[in-house]
């Protein structure tokens, strides 16, 4: 099977600082992959490169078996198979319905199909009651659930989650973690989870990629890494000595 992501010799430079340098990274797909590391370690940049939002300065990126040439049509085609939920998801002005329907609207789906899908996705996230609510009036937890419903509505093959529970109450965070597992297991969606929350990564991830100062210092099976970290920096991070 072709891997979902294949990165080779990737670097991203802001000014004079190299914020990301990945020699080799292959993500086969289907599982929950966690990108871990302290703040400023390049997690989000790596995710944005994979999501085709930030252009890499060197190296090659393959997404879903295609080598990325950053052409308009290719970007649109590949981006339409991925979705993203950020730390504080942005809501378009309008109702929850408008927001969840957006991805289908831009694909030109018929109105009846849109309504069905929106209702199903909100149902799945337990947010049916909010369908006509003003999206900008939601609480943090509600907003993140709507954002996940909005991402699911387009049936993505890959779902990026950038610190999806960092800013919300613990109860909602637990619910969202359950939803993430459900989506991965029942819908077969590949999940890329960016987090600095060790416990969350431990609860959810199958594979872990550990970033330090823009470089991949350790990667592999989650259980192995958490139980027997090989790299010095990983060890210090896992033991909580690193301030982040």
């Amino acid at each position: 099977m072709t891997p979902v992501f294949k990165l080779h010799n990737i670097a991203k430079i802001y000014g004079k600082r190299e914020v990301l340098h990945i020699d080799q990274l292959t993500i086969p797909g289907r599982k929950i992959y966690a990108i871990l590391g302290p703040n400023g370690s390049g997690k989000t940049t790596l995710m944005r490169v994979m999501a085709l939002l930030t252009r890499n300065d060197t190296g090659t990126v393959d997404v879903l078996g295609e080598n990325i040439r950053w052409g308009k049509e290719q970007l649109l085609k590949l981006r339409r198979q991925m979705a993203m939920v950020t730390q504080t998801a942005f809501m378009f002005e309008g109702t929850v319905y408008t927001n969840v329907a957006y991805g289908l609207k831009v694909r030109g789906a018929p109105e009846s199909e849109i309504r069905n899908t929106v209702e199903n996705c909100l149902e799945l996230m337990g947010m049916s009651a909010f369908i006509t609510a003003d999206a900008r009036n939601l609480s943090g937890g509600e907003r993140q659930k709507v954002a996940i419903a909005r991402a699911l509505a387009i049936r993505p093959r890959v779902l990026f989650l950038d610190e999806p529970t960092a800013n919300i109450d613990p109860q909602s965070a637990v619910e969202i973690e359950h939803h993430i597992q459900f989506i991965n297991r029942e819908m077969g969606t590949t999940i890329i989870l960016v987090t600095h929350n060790l416990f969350q990564a431990r609860r959810l991830a199958d594979e872990v990629y550990f970033l330090w100062d823009g470089r991949m210092v350790e990667q592999g099976n989650a259980q192995n890494i958490f139980d027997h970290p090989q790299d010095e920096r990983t060890r210090s991070f896992l033991s909580g000595e690193t301030v982040f």
């Binding site: 939002l53 308009k72 649109l76 993203m84 998801a89 002005e93 957006y102 991805g103 831009v106 694909r107």
Partner: peptide, 28 residues
């Protein structure tokens, strides 16, 4: 309008033109 408007639109599958339109709508 911040970068996140554009990002949200394109990650949901909007073309550049559709994303630009989303930004303009947010600026209404």
């Amino acid at each position: 309008q911040r970068q996140e408007v554009y990002d949200t639109a394109v990650t949901l599958g909007a073309s550049r033109r559709q994303a630009a339109w989303a930004i303009i709508r947010e600026s209404r």
